[in-house]
């Protein structure tokens, strides 16, 4: 299964980035093989508006089933929900640890955004 993890760096040892839309990188990780692709989110990170929505479409395009992140706002959540991507909020530590925790089933899927929108 492919999961997306927001990350401050482009390796599995990097710290998870708590922000979703404006994360530095989004790592697309295969939970079986731990092979991954590091998506550089720089353009989105500096975008004027709608960063969460754009990041959500990126995640959807990569055939990801689950997103592991810190905070997810209302527009991003709505987009992910429409794309059928499940969201796990409140993650921290290293990317690899979040993936392992997920593999052990030690997570709760969110049923709503856990952050207000930005104006």
């Amino acid at each position: 299964m492919k999961v997306a993890v927001t990350s401050q760096g482009d390796t599995l040892d990097a710290q998870l980035d708590p922000r979703f839309g404006r994360a530095a990188y989004i790592l697309i990780v295969d939970t079986e093989t731990l092979e991954f692709e590091a998506f550089n989110n720089q353009e989105n990170k500096d975008s004027f508006k709608g960063a969460g929505i754009q990041a959500a479409t990126t995640v959807s395009d990569k055939d990801v089933e689950v997103l592991l992140t810190g905070f997810c706002g209302p527009n991003a959540f709505k987009t992910l929900e429409a794309a059928g991507v499940k969201v796990v909020n409140d993650q921290s530590g290293r990317v690899i640890d979040a993936v392992q925790k997920f593999k052990q089933g030690n997570v709760v899927f969110a049923d709503d955004a856990n952050k207000d929108g930005h104006w």
Binding site: K49, A82, A83
Partner: peptide, 15 residues
């Protein structure tokens, strides 16, 4: 420029 549209695989959201 304002991220008001999200084109997904089978759906398009507008904000």
């Amino acid at each position: 420029r304002f991220g008001a549209l999200a084109v997904l695989k089978k759906e398009v959201l507008t904000f």
